[in-house]
């Protein structure tokens, strides 16, 4: 009963200045923290116990890593999905658990970041040598507009397409496009959609794509650079699956190349979208809309 009361007061995002770090505060909140971390521990143990699922397709495979079970279990347990129907589950994972989990993502990225550092450091000279490929493939993040914009127009989309077709949208790009066009504008809805779909299914999508990617006939190192799109979890799912289906001995190099490409996108992605992506998608929209669009 006290739980329910605390929930309503503590989940109000407008309370006390809405600092994104507030949920990690433990003073007087140990009960919620205990629940949040115990639920995560349980999810981790079950996911790791099940282990990696592998269904071979020739040289490639559908790989389902433990991290993909974890994201699905997390969603299902939360108060918006199964928790919305099962009162027992609401006691285990009340809304406050989901609120604590949001800044916990940033904390739990630290071990992954350190591990990536230990893969990138020793591969220093190889990465420098492949420097031109790293820089140029960043532009590839925009090549997608050429394919996705015509599809959007054929589906009858209008200006929403401007936001939805710009590569893989993560926080920085979402922020800048929303600020530029306004959150309620069609462009803003488009970019919000891309961001949310990525949040909900991005990791699962790239986890499966990484395993089947060798079917495209490209070298694993090229594919590993494709895995870096600005999201550490999507990149890890993609590179982890790719490493599992690639020839032995390439694993560390695949992971270090993917991590480097991802970090590069973190730094340059925003500027490339702002100064190249948006002008280009707008230019293409003006050219293609009269031909492919469905009128007003």
């Amino acid at each position: 009963m006290t739980d329910a009361q605390n929930d309503t007061t503590e989940t109000d995002p407008e309370a006390e200045g809405a600092d994104e770090w507030d949920p990690i505060r433990t003073t007087g909140r140990w009960e919620f923290h205990l629940k949040a971390h115990a639920v995560v521990l349980a999810i981790v143990v079950v996911s790791e116990y099940i282990g990696t699922f592998e269904y071979p397709i020739g040289e490639a495979a559908i790989i389902i890593l433990p991290m993909l079970y974890a994201v699905v279990f997390g969603m299902l347990i939360s108060f918006r999905f199964l928790g919305a129907y099962l009162t027992q589950l609401q006691k285990v994972a009340p809304p406050e658990v989901s609120r604590i989990s949001t800044p916990m993502i940033l904390i739990s990225l630290m071990p992954l970041g350190v591990i990536y550092g230990t893969l990138v450091g020793p591969a220093f000279w190889e990465i420098i040598q492949a420097g031109p490929a790293f820089v140029l493939q960043e532009v590839g993040n925009l090549a997608t507009i050429v394919i996705s914009l015509p599809v959007a127009l054929l589906l009858g989309m209008k200006r929403e397409a401007i936001g939805a077709t710009i590569s893989v949208v993560r926080e920085p790009v979402y922020g800048i496009v929303t600020e530029y066009y306004g959150p309620k504008s069609p462009e803003g809805i488009g970019v919000l959609g891309n961001y949310l779909i990525g949040t909900f299914i991005g990791t699962i999508f790239f986890g499966i794509l990484g395993g089947v990617a060798p079917l495209f006939g490209l070298h694993p190192l090229s594919l590993s650079m494709g895995c870096g799109m600005g999201s550490a979890s999507m990149m890890t799912a993609c590179a982890g699956s790719l490493a599992a289906v690639s020839p032995p001995g390439l694993e560390d190099q695949i992971l270090s190349f993917a991590a480097t490409s991802n970090t590069l996108t973190n730094f340059t992605g925003l500027w490339i979208v702002l100064f190249v992506g948006l002008p280009f998608v707008n230019f293409l929209y003006r050219k293609l809309n009269p031909v492919l669009g469905r009128g007003e």
Binding site: A36, V39, V40, I43, V44, S47, M67, L68, A70, V71, V72, F73, G74, M75, L76, I77, S78, R80, A93, V97, S98, R99, S101, T102, M104, I105, S108, L109, L112, T199, F200, T203, A232, S233
Partner: peptide, 9 residues
């Protein structure tokens, strides 16, 4: 990370 991400979604 993904367990926390799933819960926060």
């Amino acid at each position: 990370i993904l367990a926390y991400a799933g819960l926060s979604v």
